[in-house]
Design a protein around this nucleic acid. Sequence first.
DNA 1: AGTACCACCTGACGGC
DNA 2: TGCCGTCAGGTGGTAC
Length: 261
Amino acid sequence: MPELPDVEVYRKTALRCLSGKKADGAAVKDSRALKGKNTKKNLQGIKGRLGPIKRQGKNLFFKSENRGWFVMHFGMTGRLECVPKGAKEPDYSKVIFSLSGGSKLVYIVKRMLGKIESIESPAEYVSEKHIGKDFHDTGPDEFRNEAEKNSGSIKQFLMDQSKFSGIGNIYSDEILFQSGIHPAAKTKSLSSAALGRLHKKALRILNYAVEKEADPEKFPGTWLIPSRKKGAECPKCKAHVQKTKSGGRSAYVCPKCQKKN
DNA sequence: AGTACCACCTGACGGC
DNA sequence: TGCCGTCAGGTGGTAC
C-alpha cells in the first residue's frame, strides 16, 4: 500500500494523534524493524512533544524534542495507527509510542521490509539516499527534462525514487492507464505534450487518492486500481486486463487502451 | 552514470 | 483441513 498517498494519510494520522500530546518513550516490540545503531535507545528515550512531521515521497520524518529526527519507511506492508487508551494494539505492531492521556501511535509492519531509523536531519537523509523531491513539488518542466534524459521504460521512470519520489507500482499503473500509455513504452518515445499531460494526470491522481484517504474502495469505478487483476474488465472498454512484467514488477494493462507508441 | 535484476522477510492465497 | 508453491504494493546492492 504505502506509496505517496498512503504515507500522506499516515502523516495526517500522526498529526492528529500527536496533537496536544506528549510522548513518554516508545516501546520496541521487534528490533528488526529498526535500522542504525542508536535507534532503539533513542526511541525508548523519547520524551516530550513529537513534531514537526514531514513527508517526502514514501518517507515520513518526525522530530522528537529530546532525541532529534527519525525517519519511518513502510516497505510493502507497513502502516501507522492511532490507538485510543485501553484499545488493543494491532497484530504486527513493532514500535509503540506512548502518549499522554493513554493513547498510542503504533508503527505496524508485517513483512519486515519497513524500518525506523534515527537520523541527523531529513535534508541529510534524502541527499545521502538519493531521494528526489516529492512528486507533489515537481513542475511540468523538470518532469519533462528528466524524462527526456531517461532511456528506460516509462513505468520504471515513474517509479524511480531518485528523480521524484512517491510513486510506486500501483499508482504508476493507474497513472499510465488513465494516460493511455503502455508501461513498457520507452520514456523517450513520448512527445513533450504527452509528458506534460502525463505529469498533470499523475498529480491529479495522487491528490485525488489523498482526498479519498488512499482507500481503493472510495476510488471511482473508472479507475484501474479496483480492476487491477488479471482478466478483470477494463473500466473503459471492457477488454480483459492483462498482467505483464516490467522490471521484475507486475504491471497491469488494458491492451486496447494502452499503446506502446 | 544509468539501467536491470535479484535478494531480502514473512504473510496471504489458490490449488491440490 | 493442511501443505506447498507462488506472489506481494518496498528498497538496496550488484553487475553490466
